[in-house]
């Protein structure tokens, strides 16, 4: 069977439907939360700049009952329109996201590449050297990477490498070196996590019966490990890639703040401190949609990796 027959369109349709339901829940929840703010940001007597008042009125009808506001917001979201900013006249939430997307996507993508391209090999090397110094060293560093919060990694490395040694710029992405510290700080935790996971998963896999079969066939130890051990041990690693994406997003809030990167995360944190409620709402919904897309992609990756999985049979 090839992967297409294990993933009938019915399944895909169901998945997309489920995503839409979840998204609806997220929209409703964020809308409700933002309307629950004490004093209420959407109370019409609020002192707003007249242009914003006008834009909001056009968008939500602030004088309208809440359910009408909700419906018109929902209608907007369906048309990929997240409405005007609550704070900045003439700025739409869409444009805020569009502006930050490139920066966040670049650093995020680089971070994922680091997680996979450095974390997995580190785990393999550790597993191959189980109990010897490369393993001990790698796992010690990984323990640190998991324990030390990203903002600590970011600030300390900012001080050491940018302010003290001057090897990298302290902020901005004008130079390729500007990417090093943010990407490192962003991916530190997951690199360590994936290294540990790869190691333990590989060691566990190498204890399975079919590894013994592979050895009994007379395959060299390397072939046994790479051809039979590695692929199977990657299945749990792929499972965490979904959460990785999610956490890189939230991680970007603090990293973009520390390194003064104009990404979505920074916009998000700024909107929170500015109490820019429509921006908070819009960015949250954008995140949710993005994440669900990522999880779908991870599921498809899974399908390719593990032939036992068949999404068709699932009830």
């Amino acid at each position: 069977m090839n992967s297409a027959s294990r993933m009938p369109l019915a399944w895909l349709g169901q998945r997309v439907l489920m995503m839409l339901v979840t998204l609806l829940a997220v929209i409703t929840l964020t809308f409700a939360l933002m309307h629950a703010v004490p004093g209420g940001p959407f109370v019409s007597e609020k002192m707003l700049a007249p242009e914003i008042e006008a834009a909001l009125n056009a968008k939500f009808g602030l004088d309208q009952p809440v359910w009408r506001q909700y419906l018109s917001y929902l209608w907007g979201v369906l048309q990929f329109d997240l409405g005007p900013s609550f704070k900045y006249p003439g700025v739409s939430v869409n444009s805020m996201i569009a502006e930050g997307l490139a920066v966040t996507a670049q650093t995020g993508l680089l971070a994922i590449i680091c997680v996979v391209a450095l974390g997995v090999p580190t785990g393999i090397v550790a597993a191959l050297n189980r109990g010897r110094w490369p393993d001990t060293l790698a796992m010690f560093v990984a323990s640190l990477g998991i324990a030390v919060p990203s903002y600590v990694i970011a600030t300390v490395s900012l001080y050491v490498f940018a302010l003290r040694l001057g090897w990298t710029p302290a902020f901005g992405l004008d130079d390729w070196r500007g990417y090093i510290l943010p990407v490192f700080a962003l991916s530190g935790f997951w690199m360590s996590f994936v290294a540990r996971l790869t190691r333990s998963s590989l060691l566990e896999t190498m204890e399975l019966d079919y590894i013994m079969t592979a050895r009994a066939k007379g395959l060299p130890a390397r072939t046994v490990m790479l051809r039979h051990g590695l692929r199977n041990s990657m299945i749990p690693v792929v499972t965490v890639l979904g959460p990785v994406v999610a956490n890189l997003l939230t991680g970007s809030f603090v990293i973009e703040q520390i390194f003064a990167l104009p990404g979505i995360g920074r916009h998000f944190v700024l909107s929170i401190t500015n109490r820019d409620y429509t921006a908070i709402m819009g960015i949250t919904i954008f995140y949710a949609a993005f994440l669900m897309l990522m999880i779908l992609i991870v599921d498809l990756l899974y399908l390719w990796l593990d032939p036992r999985i068949s999404y068709g049979d699932r009830k």
Partner: peptide, 16 residues
């Protein structure tokens, strides 16, 4: 020398 293992359910690589 060929070997046949005890448990056929787990002796084959599931992803190959």
């Amino acid at each position: 020398i060929g070997v046949v293992f005890q448990d056929p359910m787990s002796a084959l690589n599931p992803t190959m």
